[in-house]
Amino acid sequence: MTRDDIGYHRLEWHQITVPTDLPEVIDEIDYQRVVMNAGATWDYFPGHYDPVYAEKQGHPAIFVNTMHIAGFVDRIATDWAGPSSRVVRRKVSLLGPIYAGDTMVGRGRAVDKRLDTSTDAPRYLVDLEIAVANQRGELCCPAEVTLELSS
C-alpha cells in the first residue's frame, strides 16, 4: 500500500494478489439510521419509516433500502482500495431485508484482477465478491463489485 501526497492510502493494481480477503466491516443499524436512510435518499416508501406499515407487510420492523446496502458494499470496497479507486460496476441481490436493530456484517474478497484494453485508456480493474449478512449470519445481500484502480 502507498500513500498519495495528501496522505490517503492508495492500493495499486500491480500490488494486489488474488484471491485476497478484505477486512470485515460491521455496522449497527438503529432506528435513526433507517429513518436517516429515507431522508438521505429521498426514498419515502413507508416500509422505510413507518413501523406499523412495515408490520402489515409482514416485516418485524422498518428496513433500509437498496441504496443503503449498496452504499455499505461500496464502502467495504473503497475502504480497502482507497479513495482514488472507483466503483465501475456493482450488482446486488436483495435476499433479505436489514431491519432497524440489525447489524450489517460485510465480508469481501478480491477474486480477479484484469487489464481492460477495450477503452481508450486501459483500465486497471479488480473484481470483488462481497457478502452482507445480518447478526444471525443470514446472507442478506451477495454483491459483485468491479473497482478501477490506479496502475
Binding site: 438521505a40 452504499g71 461500496d74 464502502r75
Partner: peptide
C-alpha cells in the same frame, strides 16, 4: 455528504 454520513463512509472523494 448526507448519504456518506448515512453509510458512515469516510471516503475522501
Amino acid at each position: 455528504q448526507h448519504f456518506a454520513a448515512l453509510v458512515r463512509d469516510s471516503n475522501a472523494s
